[in-house]
Design a protein around this nucleic acid. Structure first.
Lengths: 107, 107
DNA sequence: TATACATGTTTGTAATGAAAACATGTTTGT
DNA sequence: ACAAACATGTTTTCATTACAAACATGTATA
């Protein structure tokens, strides 16, 4: 018989995607998951992050292909538009599944 | 009227307790939440961490008073027993509540 | 009595998150 | 027209952190 402790499900915490797990990025990815796309300044202000901090988190998600970053000009000013990718959706859904299991195991 | 976006609940991700949120510690705290107490070697092996890594995570949770660490001798060998504190339980429950809201907002 | 074993801790290091400083261009004020 | 303020992001710098290797201590064994 396989030894299956009552907490074995909790071990999946070790497989969590840290790129998604980090709070600021979880927030950003979740927002984009619900509203599909939004611009840099709007998101940065809503989330209460500095521009620098937001920028680095954005870049990491972009490098992972979890979001798309499109740069355009509006009223002669630069505007950066973020949108979630299919890969990003999949990653967040996987994360959600893992976290749900963990939370469920806590009763 | 207060501007309440449909993703406002996701902003609570910024208030998450990072001490609990870190995967290895979330795992450890969750295990102790379900089985109350266990020893160092058992936990370290189950969790698949090196002793050094486990030791530092343990210490951080101890410093935060989320767990108790008791050292004794068994068969003339040192044994370290970890147990969750009320404060630790409260922290994990708060964390669970926050994460549940976030996950729920994702549909 | 040395060699291996067992249990943790401390130290060294690479990665990370956060904000300040910087770069680039635009609008405003005089 | 020209400087100062504003707007949008990026790059750099810094402190913290997660991780594992090395270390310390004691025990069992050959």
């Amino acid at each position: 018989m396989t030894t299956k402790s009552d907490f074995d499900v909790l071990l999946i915490a070790g497989d969590i995607d840290k790129l998604v797990h980090e709070p600021a990025r979880l927030m950003l990815l979740s927002i984009l998951y619900t509203i599909d796309s939004a611009d840099f300044v709007f998101l940065q202000k809503q989330m209460g992050l500095t521009r620098g901090n937001f920028s680095t988190h954005m870049s990491k998600l972009e490098e992972a292909h979890y979001i798309n970053v499109k740069k355009e000009f509006v009223d002669r000013k630069p505007m950066t538009v973020l949108s979630i990718t299919d890969e990003g959706r999949a990653a967040l859904e996987k994360y959600r599944g893992q976290m749900k299991k963990i939370l469920a195991a806590l009763g």
